[in-house]
Amino acid sequence: MTAATLLISVFCIGGTFMQLPISWMADRSSYRTGQLVCGLILLLGTLAFPLAD
Rank of each mutant, 00 (worst) to 15 (best):
F17A: 03
T46K: 05
D53P: 03
L40R: 01
L6P: 00
S9A: 15
L40P: 00
L43G: 03
I22A: 13
L20K: 10
A4C: 06
W24A: 05
R28H: 06
A4W: 10
I41S: 08
F49G: 09
G15W: 02
F49A: 12
G15I: 06
I13K: 01
G15N: 11
T16I: 13
S23T: 08
Q35L: 13
G15T: 09
Q35F: 04
L7V: 10
I8L: 15
Q19G: 07
A52W: 06
L6K: 05
M1N: 02
Q19K: 14
L7D: 08
D27S: 08
G34L: 01
P21Q: 04
T46S: 12
M1L: 10
I41M: 14
A4K: 14
G39K: 01
T46N: 10
I8A: 15
L20V: 06
T5A: 15
F17L: 03
L42V: 14
R32D: 13
M25P: 02
C12A: 15
G34T: 07
M1A: 08
I22Q: 08
R28I: 07
G34Q: 06
M18Y: 13
A52L: 14
D27G: 08
L44K: 10
A3G: 06
I13F: 07
F17N: 02
G34R: 08
F11M: 14
G39P: 00
L44I: 09
F11C: 14
R32T: 14
F49H: 04
G45Y: 10
M18S: 15
D27R: 12
P21H: 00
L40F: 13
L20G: 07
Q35I: 06
C12D: 08
F49P: 12
T5E: 15
L36G: 01
T33G: 04
M25H: 04
S30C: 04
T5I: 15
L36N: 03
T33E: 11
D27C: 05
T2S: 11
L40D: 02
V10K: 12
L47P: 06
S30D: 06
L36F: 06
G45P: 03
A3Q: 04
L43M: 09
L6M: 13
G14Y: 10
L43T: 05
S9R: 13
T2M: 10
T33V: 14
C38L: 14
Q19T: 12
I13W: 02
D53N: 03
A26S: 07
C12W: 07
S9K: 11
D53K: 03
A4I: 09
L44V: 10
A26C: 05
V37I: 09
R32Q: 13
A3H: 03
A3F: 07
Y31F: 07
I22Y: 02
L7C: 09
D53F: 10
M18C: 13
R28A: 08
C38H: 11
L51M: 02
I13R: 01
V10F: 06
L7I: 11
G15P: 12
I13V: 09
L51H: 00
Y31V: 07
T2F: 11
P50H: 01
F11H: 11
T5V: 15
A52G: 04
G45V: 10
L42H: 09
L44E: 11
P50G: 01
M18A: 15
A52R: 00
L20S: 09
I41L: 15
R32I: 09
P21M: 03
W24S: 04
G34I: 01
S9D: 09
T5D: 15
